[in-house]
């Protein structure tokens, strides 16, 4: 079985800083990791690969330093890794990202299953997986927490819903986005890490893909970010002291002043 896992390199910290001029993330000086949700996609891909004696390719669109995320995937057991990297891809929204990934996957050609994490911890949109399935014209199951059956023709999965779970069957090839309940990701191995250090990472630029150039990057992004900002820190509250009747009067006065009541 041929498996493709799409991953994203994200800043490690929850404390994301934004450049006020460009309204984009400041990535300099922030350690990067594989998006934690994508780690579950990698693990699930590896498990299917090991059971089916298949192959697993990991792809990512990102700057040259995303090479590290791909090497980590190889250290975990991925067979191949492709970095889709070009200045012309930068500033992409979810649509342009999905478009670019779709072009790369079309270039790879054959696949049985595509796995993505539910969403990335930086953008938090959960859109790229579904958009990618749409562009490739294949079925999708989102929020997958269990794969019950899988063969070359079909797959049966459990989707995590708020009030239980759905069991759905879909023909293959298909795309799944997975949630953290699906597995416990493995740790890398020392031999895997040594292999990863020496591995050749394929790099594809816009010239290697057959897409429409105007659909890439910022230019190809229908989403326009008007403003991104860090919310002001919450001011500290006031603690009222004294007799209860005085405190209540003071509280009501304050609530009226702030137009809460």
């Amino acid at each position: 079985m041929e498996i493709i896992v799409c991953i994203k390199q994200v800043p490690e910290t929850g404390n994301i800083k934004i450049n006020p001029q460009t309204n984009t993330l400041i990535r300099e000086g922030v350690p990067s990791i594989i998006n934690p949700m994508d780690m579950y996609a990698i693990e699930e891909g590896l498990r299917i690969k090991e059971k089916s004696s298949g192959r697993m390719t990991v792809i990512t669109m990102g700057p040259p330093q995303a090479d590290a995320a791909l090497r980590e995937s190889i250290s975990l057991g991925a067979d191949d890794a492709i970095l889709i990297s070009d200045k012309r891809f930068s500033g992409a929204d979810t649509w342009a990202t999905a478009y670019t990934l779709a072009q790369a996957i079309k270039k790879i050609g054959h696949y049985d299953l595509i796995l993505c994490g539910k969403q990335a911890i930086d953008g938090d949109t959960a859109q790229v997986g579904p958009e990618l399935a749409e562009m490739l014209g294949i079925p999708i199951a989102t929020y997958v927490r269990k794969i019950e059956e899988i063969d070359n023709e079909h797959i049966r999965v459990h989707r995590m819903m708020e009030d239980g779970y759905d069991v759905i069957d879909t023909p293959m090839p298909a795309l799944l986005t997975v949630v953290k309940e699906i597995n416990i990701p493995r740790l890398p191995s020392l031999k895997g890490k040594m292999k990863a250090r020496k591995a050749e990472i394929t790099v594809w630029t816009a010239d290697d893909l057959n897409g429409e150039p105007s659909f890439y990057g910022l230019q190809g992004s229908p989403t326009w970010v008007v403003k991104i900002f860090s919310p002001d820190p919450r001011p500290s509250g006031r603690i009222l002291t004294g007799k209860t009747s005085e405190m209540v009067a003071e509280l009501v006065k304050g609530l009226k002043e702030t137009k809460i009541i």
């Binding site: 020392l190 031999k191 040594m194």
Partner: peptide, 17 residues
């Protein structure tokens, strides 16, 4: 074991690191 920790002290010719 899966992480090859037990291979650390075994010579390469016998499957270690």
């Amino acid at each position: 074991a899966k992480s090859d920790m037990f291979g650390i002290f075994i010579p390469e010719e016998f499957g270690g690191l």
